[in-house]
């Protein structure tokens, strides 16, 4: 038995090593003194300097962030409203919309992407920031609906009615009674939407226009040449995500601990 648990730990360590190897690699080589991607020749910050000096690179960070933020806000609001509307609709409408909603998730990214591209070109909309943003909003909405719907299903219809009986306007009933109860679903939907948008390459690649690159399409476009600044860019992303994760995981933990302390005190 002892031997078995040793093996399972070793196996898991091996898997984790595989997962973290590329991350360790980019961080290490972002400080490399030479252009080489295989030999570490010494410590230098030149790739960070180059990164901050390259306008397109800084722009790609800006576009990825701004698009992810706007797409998250809009898709969360629209997705939540659609989900609430759906929960009040007849079964037939519910079924139909759910099927349509599943389509972008079953369809390969690339098919959704060229669908958008042909759609914009059919309507003669020139590709650029607007089309990129619109595509991101649309492909995020299904994920928001999908995470809000289960919460709505648990909701007791009578509570909203009680609010109306007690003198709430329908709008007040919505944001004082319904929204607080499905908050968890909305938050997790927003998180999924943000990650999907920030991480997306395929849909962005086909719907963006000249001069507008997010991080993914920028990295894709520069891979024809060896460009160690990309490692510096990657390292910045790794650090940013680690900080966000620490905040989102540690803060609730501290909160929970504090609440526990208060209870025992």
């Amino acid at each position: 038995m002892k031997k078995k648990s040793w093996f399972s730990k070793f196996y898991l360590v091996l898997i984790m090593a595989f997962f973290y190897l590329p991350i360790v690699y980019v961080v290490l080589f972002s400080f490399n003194a030479s252009r080489s991607l295989t030999n570490f020749t010494g410590f230098s910050l030149q790739w960070y300097q180059k990164m901050f000096a390259t306008r397109e690179m800084m722009e790609s960070i800006y576009y990825s962030t701004i698009i992810a933020v706007i797409a998250t806000v809009v898709s969360t609001i629209v997705g939540t409203i659609v989900a609430i509307g759906l929960s009040k609709s007849s079964r037939l409408v519910k079924e139909a919309v759910t099927q349509v909603n599943n389509l972008p998730m079953l369809n390969p990214d690339i098919v959704t992407a060229i669908g958008f591209m042909l759609f914009f070109s059919t309507l003669n909309i020139p590709t650029g920031f607007g089309t990129l943003l619109l595509a991101h909003i649309v492909f995020c909405i299904p994920y928001v609906i999908l995470s809000v719907m289960p919460k709505l299903r648990q909701l007791d219809d009578n509570v909203a009615e009680a609010a109306l009986d007690l003198g709430c306007t329908p709008f007040e009933a919505l944001y004082k009674v319904i929204i607080p109860q499905i908050r968890e679903g909305i938050i997790s939907g927003a998180l999924v939407a943000f990650t999907m948008s920030f991480d997306d390459f395929v849909i962005s690649y086909f719907t963006t226009g000249p001069g507008i690159n997010n991080i993914s399409t920028y990295v894709y476009a520069t891979t024809k040449r060896i460009n160690p600044s990309v490692n510096a860019l990657s390292t910045i992303i790794v650090i940013a995500i680690t900080i966000i994760l620490i905040i989102t995981n540690v803060v609730p933990m501290i909160k929970a601990r504090r609440e526990n302390d208060e209870k025992t005190a």
């Binding site: 980019v26 991480d199 991080i215 993914s216 990295v219 860019l233 990657s234 995500i241 994760l245």
Partner: peptide, 18 residues
């Protein structure tokens, strides 16, 4: 989950170097 949050292109680019 953590490595998955880092851009797919970035991770693939790293493998290219390795």
């Amino acid at each position: 989950t953590l490595p998955q949050l880092i851009n797919m292109l970035v991770r693939t680019y790293a493998w290219r170097g390795i």
